[in-house]
Design a protein around this nucleic acid. Structure first.
Lengths: 220, 220
DNA sequence: TATAATACTGAATAAAAGTTCAGTGTTATA
DNA sequence: TATAACACTGAACTTTTATTCAGTATTATA
């Protein structure tokens, strides 16, 4: 039987310029195809509610093929989480330098998260995945590290702002959680927003985080 | 066969004081038992990940009995959502009067949410439930109303603060979403906290929401 | 060109989960 | 006390889902 997939590409390498192994190329391609579909589905429907069959339908490739490229559903999900992490780090490293102050960095982070569509590592699916009793022993640890890593990221960012004298605050750990909570909640709401609206809301959230809404007279 | 349940209670009504129908009493009791177990499980594991079998194990009553009291899993979940809503409204009505200013009300709300354990109507399970394609046509509408109701609640609260001249802000709708996002995110994080830590974090979040963290000089 | 390695298919398997239902006690009604 | 209505059981039924595997097509290797 003929697979339609095999007919495309592979013509590009007229001579021997970037003549990578065709099989590796193919593997990368379908692995990406599966990952992309799965990422969207997990983010939209959650972990448990996304079936292999869903991914089969979305990709057009067979169930067996998915298990050829990934150990199992859990492995696929874990792969996506770690991919997201490294991807985020990479993009952040690029952008970070553009922002002089910590405040600018925070707005930049919010923007990146808003534009990111299916975004936060602690997305609904990840949270569900984490909280779900049946956990391979090593898996839980890996996720715990991710959560911690994300909070550490926030904390360091905020600490930078304190060192810069941009903020005045003591409880940095608490604020890291607050900031993450805000982004986490916005992520859920933003799924029902247009891109522009999401951007605006994230920006407003950062306004609030930085400046609050109460008149400066009261309470404090 | 004897059901152990039937042996308890029913002795209380010595004469004919509050002699309610024994069957109604029994129905209420088991319905509550099922609801309580289901609520805890849904909140902990999520909607899809909680099976009827889980509820059977937690309650000790049979699967058939659950379907005797509730139309199906979806109906059970919906029942819990609406119960949460009315329950929240009731408690809020009691407390609300104790808080003179809107700022106090906001802190009060945060406290109530922090103490509430399994709390927010837009909890992980609800969100998962909502986003999950296969939705009975009427169900989606009912949930949509709930979400809207909750945002309206926030918005009215904030509007009160503006009318009182406690806040100065324009985008009330946006702020209602921000506030909800914050509570939503905190809800997820607070699952991994002790009661005291949760309370403190919620309070800090409200500090930030009201006053921000940046020095007043910058940006604005 | 022959052989091995690789990328896949698609149906089968098995476990899990939602739902139904015939039947059994228990309580209300007449 | 007899009969109807009710609360409930537990196993059977159906659907869904993750996972495996024997086999096929394609590509690399010798």
């Amino acid at each position: 039987m003929l697979y339609g997939v095999h007919l495309e590409k592979s013509v590009i390498q007229k001579s021997g310029e970037i003549d990578v192994n065709k099989k590796k190329q193919q593997t990368e391609q379908t692995k990406k195809k599966i990952a992309d579909a799965a990422r969207a589905l997990f983010a939209q429907k959650g972990y448990k509610a996304t079936s292999i069959e869903d991914i089969v339908k979305a990709t057009g490739c067979s169930a067996g093929n998915i298990y050829y490229h990934f150990k199992n559903k859990e492995g696929l999900f874990l792969y996506l989480l770690e991919e997201w992490n490294t991807e985020w780090d990479k993009r952040w490293l690029d952008k970070q330098t553009l922002y002089p102050t910590t405040i600018d960095k925070l707005y930049g982070m919010a923007e990146q998260l808003a534009l990111d569509q299916l975004n936060h590592p602690l997305t609904k699916a990840a949270d569900e995945f984490f909280n779900n009793s049946e956990k391979a022993p090593d898996v839980e640890e890996r996720i715990h590290e991710m959560v911690k890593g994300y909070l550490d990221f926030n904390q360091q960012l905020l600490q930078g702002g304190i060192d810069n004298h941009e903020f005045e605050t003591t409880n940095v750990t608490g604020l890291a959680i607050i900031l993450d909570s805000l982004m986490l909640g916005l992520n859920q709401h933003s799924r029902r927003m247009e891109r522009a609206e999401a951007l605006e809301t994230y920006r407003l959230a950062m306004d609030v985080f930085l400046h609050g809404i109460a008149k400066p007279t009261r309470t404090r």
